[in-house]
Design a protein around this nucleic acid. Structure first.
Length: 375
DNA sequence: GCTAGACCCTGC
DNA sequence: CAGGGTCTAG
C-alpha cells in the first residue's frame, strides 16, 4: 500500500509547504506529528506522509479497483507526479546555502525553516485560486476553493475520515474551465460566498473557453506559457479578469516555472520595509503603486538571485513572528550587486501581434484591456 | 500615467 | 477595520 522514497525533511517539509497558501486543496488528516495529506487529482487521490528521512506515498483510485498486477504501475505514475509536483530535482539545500551567503536575514532563519520549496501546480487551478486570494485570507480562500470543487466537479471517490472513520469524505478534482464558464456560474458563486470575485472567476473561465474551446486546450494553453518568457506569460495572464500584477506573479511563480518572480503583497511589503531597507511605513499602510511594486520585487530579486521566488516563499512561510521573536534587527542589507537598475530599461515594444494560439477573440476589449495591451 | 474608492465577507 | 488586490472612474 504505502510506498517510500528517501527524502530528508530538509528537502521537503510537508506541513510547511502544503498548508502555507501555495495550494489550497490539500486535505490534512490525523494528529499533529505524523499527519497525512491528501490531494485529489483528475483520476486519483494522492496520499502523503513523512518522517525525518522518508516520504511515504500511496495512490487511491476510484472503483473498479485495478488488478493487483497494475498497482506497481499506478504507484510509478504517482512517483513521477511527485517528482514533478515537488520539483525534487531541485536541491533545496544548495539553494538555502546560496541564499544564506547572499543574505544575512536569510542566514538567521535558515535552519529553523528547512524544507520549504515551491510546488509546481496546475496552472488553471493556480489561476482561479489566486483570483480568490485578493483582499482575502488563507482560511476563506481554502473554503472557497473547496466549495468550487464540490459544486462544479463530480466526486471522484470517497474515503473515511481518519479522525472519525464513521464519516465519509468526498474527494473532488479541481473543475476544468468549461465547468466554470457558463454565465449563471457567477451568480451561484456569489451565493456561495465568493463575493465580488464570483464574476472574475466565471469571466476568466469563459475567456479561456471562448479562445480555446471546451476541451483541454485551454489548460494546454496555460501550461504552454511555461515555455514563454516571464514577460510574455505575465502579459497573457494580465488579460484575465481579476488578475492584477500580484496574482499574475503568483501564477508565474507557482505553476509556470518562473522561479525568479517575487510576488509582492502587503506581507512581503512589510518584510521588505523591515529587513531590506525598502521605503514605506511599518504602521501606516502605504498604497502599493505599480512603481513601488516593481521596486520591491526588483530589489528582492537582486538579493536572492535566480531562484528569488523560491526564497520569497521561505520568508513568507516563516512568518514575521519568527524574525521578531529572535531579535533579528532590521538592517540594511549589503547587496551583492548594488541594484544598478539603470533607469527603466527600454521595454521592447511588442512587435508581433498576438499569435493564433494566444489571442482571445470576440469580447470587445475593456478600457483596461486596451491599456494593458498598450503597456 | 497616477490616485482614490468601492468591493464581498470574516475574523480580531 | 484590515486581510496574500483589482477594477473603475477622474
Amino acid at each position: 500500500m504505502w510506498q517510500s522514497l528517501a527524502l530528508p525533511q530538509s528537502q521537503l517539509c510537508l506541513s510547511a509547504v502544503l498548508k502555507c497558501g501555495q495550494s489550497f486543496r490539500w486535505m490534512v488528516a490525523g494528529a499533529a506529528p505524523n499527519q497525512e495529506y491528501r490531494l485529489c487529482l483528475r483520476e486519483r487521490v494522492v496520499c502523503l506522509k513523512q518522517d525525518p528521512t522518508t516520504l511515504f506515498y500511496r495512490t487511491i483510485l476510484p472503483d473498479p479497483q485495478p488488478s493487483a498486477l497494475h498497482w506497481p504501475l499506478r504507484d510509478a505514475e504517482t512517483l513521477i507526479w511527485l517528482n514533478d509536483y515537488f520539483q525534487l530535482d531541485v536541491d533545496l539545500q544548495t539553494l538555502y546555502s546560496k541564499w544564506a551567503a547572499r543574505d544575512k536575514v536569510f542566514s538567521s532563519i535558515e535552519t529553523r525553516f528547512a524544507g520549504i520549496r515551491m510546488l509546481r501546480q496546475d496552472p488553471f487551478e493556480n489561476l482561479i485560486s489566486f483570483i480568490c486570494s485578493s483582499n482575502n485570507n488563507i482560511g476563506r480562500i481554502t473554503k472557497m476553493v473547496q466549495s468550487l470543487c464540490r459544486h462544479y466537479s463530480p466526486s471522484l471517490l470517497s474515503l473515511p475520515d481518519p479522525v472519525d472513520p464513521l464519516i465519509q469524505v468526498q474527494y473532488h478534482p479541481f473543475p476544468p474551465p468549461a465547468a466554470l464558464a457558463a454565465p449563471e456560474v457567477a451568480a451561484t458563486l456569489r451565493d456561495l460566498g465568493f463575493g465580488y470575485r464570483a464574476k472574475y472567476i466565471q469571466r476568466t473561465a469563459k475567456m479561456l473557453v471562448d479562445a480555446h474551446g471546451s476541451g483541454d486546450l485551454a489548460e494546454k494553453f496555460l501550461a504552454g506559457l511555461r515555455n514563454a518568457t516571464t514577460e510574455d506569460a505575465r502579459e497573457e495572464l494580465l488579460k484575465f479578469v481579476g488578475v492584477g500584477r500580484k496574482v499574475a506573479d503568483c501564477v508565474l511563480l507557482m505553476s509556470l516555472d518562473k522561479k525568479e518572480v517575487v510576488p509582492v503583497d502587503t506581507h512581503v511589503h512589510q518584510i521588505a520595509i523591515k529587513h531590506y531597507g525598502l521605503k514605506g511605513s511599518l504602521s501606516s499602510k502605504t498604497s502599493m503603486t505599480p512603481k513601488l511594486y516593481e521596486e520591491i520585487s526588483t530589489r528582492l530579486v537582486a538579493v536572492w538571485g535566480d531562484y528569488a521566488g523560491w526564497a520569497h516563499s521561505v520568508l513568507f512561510t516563516s512568518d514575521l513572528k519568527a524574525f521578531s521573536s529572535h531579535g533579528v534587527v532590521a538592517t540594511e542589507i549589503a547587496l551583492p550587486t548594488p541594484p544598478p537598475t539603470p533607469s527603466p530599461l527600454k521595454r521592447k515594444v511588442p512587435t508581433a501581434e498576438a499569435t493564433e494560439s494566444n489571442v482571445v477573440p470576440a469580447s470587445p476589449l475593456t478600457e483596461r484591456a486596451k491599456r494593458r495591451r498598450a503597456a
